[in-house]
Amino acid sequence: MKFLCVECDRQMMFDERQLPGDGTFAAAFKCPACGRVVAMLANPMETQLVASLGVKIGGDTIGEQPFEMIRATVATAKDDALREPIREAPSRTGVRWSAEALERLSRVPAFVRGMVKRIYAEYAEERGIAEITPAVMDRARTELGLEGM
């Protein structure tokens, strides 16, 4: 899928993802010449169809996580279906979690919690963020396209 700025005759580039939280998906594409931005808006069915292919509009930003699609989409899984990693990857920068962020993380179903925690931690580490707060989580969720996380 490509977007063309007809006026400039330039291919528009992926700019950002937005996840309104209602099952829909939005991706913005920007013209590198004139700066015009257009948004592609997908309804819940289209969003689910793309998710079911295991691909991400705008590119794969978080890398393949084991059972990523299963953990993100199976609604009837038991919470403790997967044992957490035998060896927890060491944190490179010792990123901290605020109490509010941990509380929010605790509301993520246990089936996906470990994966979500690792993704947020890596996001913070890569950007030199010392503490993960709900605001950081919101930003990561949008930038990485973490629908349902």
């Binding site: 819940p44 069915m45 689910q48 989409t73 199976v74 009837t76 899984a77 038991k78 349902g148």
Partner: peptide
Amino acid sequence: QLLADGRALAFTGPDRDSHVW
């Protein structure tokens, strides 16, 4: 091994369109 006891496999997303995906 992943499903809750007695639960059938169901996915998140809109039931109405589930035949599509």
